[in-house]
Write a protein that binds this DNA or RNA. Structure first.
Lengths: 208, 208
DNA sequence: TAGATTGTTAATCGATTAACAATC
DNA sequence: TAGATTGTTAATCGATTAACAATC
């Protein structure tokens, strides 16, 4: 099915569409149009239909999309219909914030193991999950069958952590460290670079 | 100068290039080639040169770029040569993490005012900056001449906060709330959507 | 001079936008 | 049937990649 290449931007939008559908009160209306979705998430209706068309025909012409069934399709495409174990590495302020982030919980994401190198933090618990020494990362992550590793460590050690995660057989890495990670191409990698986002904004200042 | 449209992706890369230049030890070599930069940040050398070419000629053919001078040019383009006041709204776990984030400090970003609605938090201090009631947002942000507002509140109130920030004359908004903000087009807006990044990764699972 | 590396133009590629036939 | 809205093809737009002349 994934033989035709799906644009990254399309995948991101699928996730956004799905989150919007989550919020619709289906008692008011059980269907939704591409125009409606487009307006609500800030894209244009052509794009909504095009994005969906990569994966099949989910709507009814003249009527629209059934909210519940479309969302089920989207969740399935995003593989959110099955639980997935996630390892969080780096339990500093940012790691802490991620571990407790509502936006993850709402979409069904729960961290199944958490690592840090600070002896002060090791042994403490978050939502019933114990913080473990990063020395045991490879062992535990493999045991846990974590499919995703999240890196919220300092940039210096991020590459090393990434290597360990790959050894422990994660399939994907979400990296918050501001550094270019070199990893095997079969691992999917996504970088979230916070400073860069701020600098995008300062660039746009009209320097009077 | 900004009459020709600069791709967003280019602006993001300028920021990445600059951060890389920060890290180069110029005692070892005072110049750097587009190949070198490209390798280090994970893009291709054509792209580095093309990105820079939007703004001028910064290199010497046959030699490369002077590290220090190129970085100064980039910092100027990104308007990082002048301090800019930033308001942070929402001092939950995520806001807290952002306020203390090293990656911001390293690039010269400091938050000059912080807001929350929780009486428990109001009056506490972070790096010498007091958390203020969100009721006083418009007044204080305008007084402070904040050019950027960062929203790390729950999604429900994000639009309302955005409106207040715009009233208080910010020029840009960095939004962490998972919701589409409707704001005047002259305000530059950047969304950082954490859950969507995770779902990008789950999409790529090879569903065996 | 010969080798290296930039700056810039051209070619390719991919994503978005638009238009419209299909059909409920 | 008429109106609405999808699914899909075509047109446009923009960004990336490649090639190469310029020049240090």
């Amino acid at each position: 099915m994934k033989s035709i290449k799906i644009p990254e931007a399309t995948i991101i939008r699928l996730s956004v569409y799905s989150r919007y559908l989550d919020k619709i009160d289906i008692r008011k209306s059980s269907t939704v149009s591409s125009d409606d979705i487009a307006q609500s998430v800030g894209v244009n209706p052509f794009q909504v239909r095009k994005d969906l068309a990569y994966f099949g025909e989910f709507g009814i012409r003249g009527v629209g999309y059934n909210v519940k069934s479309l969302n089920q399709h989207l969740l399935k495409l995003l593989n959110l219909n099955v639980k997935c174990n996630i390892a969080l590495v780096g339990f500093g302020k940012l790691g802490h914030a991620l571990a407790l982030y509502q936006g993850f919980k709402e979409r069904g994401f729960v961290f199944t193991c958490i690592f840090d190198s600070d002896p002060q933090k090791i042994g403490t618990k978050v939502n019933g999950v114990e913080v473990i020494s990063v020395d045991r990362l490879e062992e535990i992550v493999e045991q846990n069958h974590s499919r995703i590793g999240i890196i919220s460590t300092p940039a210096k050690v991020a590459q090393e952590i990434a290597n360990s995660l790959v050894k422990a057989r994660v399939q994907s890495i979400l990296n918050f460290a501001p550094v270019n990670l070199n990893i095997a191409p079969e691992i999917s990698l996504r970088n979230v670079d916070l400073a860069v986002n701020l600098e995008f904004l300062t660039f746009n200042f009209d320097d009077e």
